[in-house]
């Protein structure tokens, strides 16, 4: 199965690598980024702590899997912002102080 005696290499035909341009619509869908934005919005609007934490976790996942910096960075940063904003409103914001009833 080894190549024949004559050398198969042809330096004259060598072409340097050119990465094929990928259109933004052809990129795989960033599900984690999308979930992060949804959770972030819910966490900030309805004051669900768990949603804000999930937004942070999913945006971290999206950041870890980021391939195309140009296209992905905006969605990830939006998700992060919503997540952090949700956490800030949950922990630092003034909410109705519920009184315990016996």
């Amino acid at each position: 199965m080894s190549s024949p005696a004559n050398d198969p290499r042809q330096p004259s035909t060598a072409k340097p690598y050119k990465p094929s341009p990928v259109a933004p619509q052809d990129l795989p869908i960033d599900y984690s980024g999308f979930i992060a934005v949804i959770c972030g919005v819910f966490g900030a609007m309805f004051r669900y702590k768990i949603c804000s934490w999930l937004a942070i976790i999913f945006s971290a996942q999206s950041l870890a899997n980021m391939r195309n910096m140009e296209n992905d960075l905006k969605q990830i940063s939006m998700a992060m912002m919503f997540g952090i904003m949700g956490l800030m409103t949950n922990y630092l914001g003034v909410g109705p102080r519920g009184s315990k009833k016996t």
């Binding site: 042809q10 060598a14 072409k15 690598y17 976790i57 996942q61 870890a64 899997n65």
Partner: peptide, 26 residues
């Protein structure tokens, strides 16, 4: 990984798609 300069072909592109070990959720 890319290789070029061989008879019968313009070039070869090898793409390694590994498990997402860096992503805990994956």
């Amino acid at each position: 990984f890319y290789a070029s300069g061989r008879r019968f072909c313009q070039g070869l592109l090898a793409t390694m798609e590994l498990k997402s070990r860096h992503d805990l959720i994956s």
